[in-house]
Nucleic acid binder design. Structure first.
Lengths: 338, 338
DNA sequence: ACTGGCACTGGTCAGGGTCGAGTGCCAGAA
DNA sequence: TTCTGGCACTCGACCCTGACCAGTGCCAGT
């Protein structure tokens, strides 16, 4: 029972602090929440919570603020998932379904996510290595150049142009194409890459130069890490709201935004549902005042990549988690359809 | 003569203020620069410059700082172009020449520009409307779907997939392709779009549905404003250095960065060589503390798009202008080669 | 036309006093 | 036990004050 009340106090403090950005004291707490006990009792509870490491006091005669451990407890055991309003759901749906290609989906996701959460949003481009080959096309261009087009199951279209040493015959090209298709269609990109390597030896020695240079380019495209590692970032304008604590809330985020690698690391490993990293849990000391809410996305079950938001630890976790989860779901659905 | 000295004083004040970020007084000025006169004389000159609107004093007993008009005079008449170091030139060259496609060029340009200037860099994607058609390809996919590929003179490859009502014959497709190529090759995209419209009537009525849907998709691609209006932004980390005046130097920039339209407007109309907009000259009141240095780029003579940087009015104009100019030149050259 | 000197101005900074929100603890009530 | 009212205490926020000083404007003199 008494444990219960303590947790309620913790919850109330987190909520109030997130709302007001100011240390919350025992008196203010009993006024705003119907806790049924006096402020003195709350004071004792707060002292206990501080002993256990869930709260901290900036100085003797200020209120308490949650520690990272306090936030952690809050998201793990105290927060109820805050459902998005119907209007918000509809906004996500209509905005995302207006996208015309994969790049556009990513850009729109970033935008809507930043808007919903009032934070900096990060969306990783759908991973190539996890998607499969849907179509391969070879087109002879003028001169001895060949255009290679690959369409993946994630809807991404990649193209390359190779300059060959000699002009290939129509026959060779179409033969090569059909063999490539047979070997790779439906395969995941890394496997497709392997299959291609085996393919070269099956051609006549005369054709080897042409085949090799087309096939290796294609294999490079398949195992191209670039797209995996690309992320789109948005919502920087939201940082402006945190003018008060520039050094703890803005500077580190601005700096992290510059490095794609850092961002990718922040989004973290694949996890089911919205995942929260608070302060040092992000793995970077300079982001001690920052929390990351992330989720994988992809058509049902499959995992294409990650998306999420980044903001001060004192954020509205339930709302942010709901928004991240919802956007991830819609993006996955749309990628499956398109 | 006396006019000459006054301008020298203005130049010295701009240089000192840019270097120190602090109002500069008459005494400090004579110490740092060999002006050959006493501080009292400088005081008179400063008073005169203030009357003419080139300087302003934050308060009675502080030094002077340049007004926007002062900066304007500085860049127009006083600044000598500061040549980049050989190391810098080489850095630009090697970094940019490592790019693998147009998107990569843009991303790398943003990065190097931000690095050289320590400011926020903006690079507009090469405009489609200003480039010409270099190649068009139609490829039948499985079912009745057709892949359309366009390569423009700026090296950009755009592709679309159309779902047709009926499967077109091989003959029709190759006929259509050759007529499209004949009509549009080498044309600028807007003109190419017009030519396409005329093309439809030259086909037999039976073929109209297929032709129409391919041709309109293609025309849409040509007149697609999206790529024109896309910009890449980088160097946000550099904003962190201006922590001091968050509200005047950072907030407005963060907000502007959110809106592509605003950024495009800031880059401004085509102009030759680096162009500088100071404070309200940007056309936005909230950017009164910000200056934009921009330039067009493109292979010699031609203009593909704009790039530039954005920073506080108290920036090192000569260095920034040199960097913007140099990057613009190299990007243009690389686009021409690739 | 320039300079040295001098009175003046206004911002910054450190010291000191007041105020008040909030705490910890204790003795007594439920 | 558990809660409550009361009280002394703490410490930051705020304000005022005076010393200090960078820098100015002006004037009489060279």
């Amino acid at each position: 029972m008494i444990e219960d009340r303590r947790l309620n106090v913790l919850r109330a403090i987190v909520e109030d602090y997130v709302a007001t950005q100011e240390p919350v004291g025992s008196k203010a707490l009993v006024e705003r929440h119907r806790l049924g006990v006096s402020s003195a009792t709350i004071r004792n509870d707060m002292a206990a919570l501080e002993d256990e490491g869930y709260l901290t006091a900036p100085h003797t005669s200020a209120g308490r603020i949650p520690t990272d451990k306090g936030y952690r407890m809050f998201v793990d055991r105290l927060a109820e998932v805050k459902a998005l309003s119907i209007a918000e759901r509809r906004a996500i749906e209509t905005f995302l379904s207006g996208a015309i290609d994969v790049d556009d989906i990513v850009m729109r996701s970033v935008k809507i996510l930043a808007q919903l959460t009032n934070q900096v949003a990060i969306v990783q481009y759908p991973s190539l290595t996890r998607s499969t080959v849907r179509h391969v096309e070879l087109v002879a261009l003028e001169g001895s150049r060949v255009l290679i087009v690959v369409i993946t199951s994630s809807g991404r279209v990649e193209q390359r142009i190779v300059e060959l040493v000699e002009t290939p015959s129509e026959g060779l090209l179409s033969d090569l194409k059909s063999r490539i298709v047979r070997a790779t269609l439906g395969e995941r990109l890394p496997e497709a890459s392997l299959r291609l390597a085996e393919l070269i030896d099956t051609f006549a020695t005369d054709d080897r130069p042409v085949v090799t240079s087309i096939v290796t380019t294609l294999a490079n495209t398949f195992s191209n890490e670039r797209s995996d590692e690309r992320v789109a970032v948005g919502g920087t304008g939201n940082l402006a709201r945190f003018g008060a604590d520039f050094d703890t809330a803005i500077r580190p985020v601005l700096e992290a935004m510059e490095e794609q690698v850092v961002l990718l690391h922040l989004l973290g490993e694949a996890t089911v549902g919205p995942h929260v990293r608070i302060g040092r849990e992000t793995g970077r000391d300079d982001l001690s005042g920052t929390a990351v809410v992330s989720s994988t996305y992809g058509p049902d079950g499959e995992t294409f990549a990650q998306l999420g938001t980044m903001g001060p630890t004192r954020m509205d976790y339930p709302a942010t988690m709901a928004a991240v989860g919802a956007v991830a779901r819609y993006v996955g659905r749309i990628l499956a359809d398109g």
